[in-house]
Amino acid sequence: MELRINQKAYQVEADADTPLLWVIRDDLGMTGTKYGCGLAQCGACSVLVDGNVVRACVTPVAAVAGREITTIEAIEADDVGKRVVAAWVEHQVAQCGYCQSGQVMAATALLKHTPAPTPAQIDAAMVNLCRCGTYNAIHTAMDDLAKQERAL
């Protein structure tokens, strides 16, 4: 089947029920997207499908054939994603960094739908887990992005 990832077409051979995450990481070698729990609970494997955040570990690859997939590798090619990464760097959000590609994807998806989220909306949407406990830094970076948007 053909997958469209980061504006490129890939031919992949995989069973219909293979999780998208395995195809991205193992077959296509894009290892920026991480495996965390495998149960859609932590969010480390978040990618964008048609601009919505999905958890790649519980997404059968057949379900996303022909749709536009964005992974962390190309997030800076997206205007919103680029601003998120810049804010992440400015606020030095990451500690170990394992969950952060998923956090950036979740943040990008939120800002695409809600460009200037309130603190409550940030808390409601940013539910990916982080074992380092960078939640406050994430919240600050997001709040900053929302304020920039309101100032425009």
Partner: peptide, 14 residues
């Protein structure tokens, strides 16, 4: 993530 915001799941897997 699995059952869909629309509740329609991802048949036939979820």
């Amino acid at each position: 993530s699995c059952h869909g915001l629309d509740g329609k799941g991802q048949p036939d897997w979820m």
